[in-house]
Write a protein that binds this DNA or RNA. Structure first.
Lengths: 174, 174
DNA sequence: CAGAGAAACTTCAAGCTTAAAGTTATTTTC
DNA sequence: GAAAATAACTTTAAGCTTGAAGTTTCTCTG
């Protein structure tokens, strides 16, 4: 009874891809796909978070925020950052506060509109970010390294299709 | 200067897939792939969270925990749940506490090992979960609905390869 | 140009999440 | 069979995240 042969792998986690399968309407294929997608991104994201913490004593949200700022020499408005990062405005407020405290970013009120906050990387912040970004690139390259270039291309393409499907679905029915 | 044509879509978010590209070591392809993967799963996950909240006044972690329990008539040990959900033990403790409070799950100490907590869905919890799971299946089917079956199959396959790559990478270098 | 409305945050309350440290209970070792 | 090691949680401190409500500052209408 209940004889499972579990494969606890290097993650220390059991293979979780057996979550919410077999639904009444038989959406098994889609659910399986979603679960696998989620598993992949969770595995990668967890690893990235771990390394950011261990190697840079930082976090993914901080890194993401700085990444947004990196290519914006003239700084960026909070609302723009919020949209690009796909997180709530209130969240950005908090992150910005901390990053400003630690000297990674600067914060100015727009001279033309006093509601608007403009943030930008400080030289220190930029230097720190570049170190992290470089390491981050290596980590990702390692994690994806077992995937043949051709598979990577196919995956990129299929994900584009998925994204279109998702955005379309979000757009209409709602 | 800085003339952007942004496509703010149905999500209200700007297309964020331009995050951490162009790294020194030129891991652009992998980074692009990672970003796209992350975008897809974030879009879907956010939508699922929103609907769980709006339609069931629940959350994704709660749903996931109940999903784990659903196929375990005899209940499940906390550590097992933790591994399957890929979250920390402390997290499970909190979730279990709340779900027990709300009557969705029961909690017993193992008679053979008093360190071990066994949790299981209550009839009420099971009924609630079934409603949610059914709706959840429909949401996912909608979101993935624009993907041709063949594309779904290809994607599933490629994600399997990616997962192998990730797990292998996590296993060795560390 | 005053009042209504919209924008751009900020604050708040609540929940999720983790790593690390702490408990309690069981197993292993000598 | 006691001490040491191991297991299975639980607690704690800290940070992330959100939706909703609140502020302040424009902008638009009449």
């Amino acid at each position: 009874m209940d004889e499972r042969k579990e494969t606890t792998n290097a993650t220390g986690w059991v293979d979780g891809e057996t979550k919410v399968l077999e639904a009444p309407g038989d959406h098994g294929a889609e659910l399986r796909l979603w679960l696998r997608l989620l598993t992949c991104s969770t595995l990668i994201e967890t690893e990235v978070r771990r390394r950011l913490r261990e190697e840079f004593d930082s976090t993914l949200p901080r890194f993401d925020l700085m990444a947004q700022l990196e290519r914006a020499r003239d700084g960026m408005v909070l609302g723009e950052v919020s949209k690009r990062m796909m997180v709530s405005p209130g969240n950005i407020t908090v992150l910005v506060e901390r990053l400003a405290e630690s000297g990674h970013i600067s914060r100015t009120t727009s001279p033309t509109d006093r509601r608007v906050q403009i943030i930008a990387l400080t030289p220190f912040g930029r230097a720190e970010f570049e170190k992290m970004a470089s390491a981050h690139g290596d980590w990702i390259a390692d994690l994806f390294g077992g995937l043949a270039p051709k598979d990577g291309a196919v995956l990129l393409d299929e994900l584009a299709k998925l994204k279109r499907s998702v955005v379309a679905s979000l757009g209409k029915g709602n």
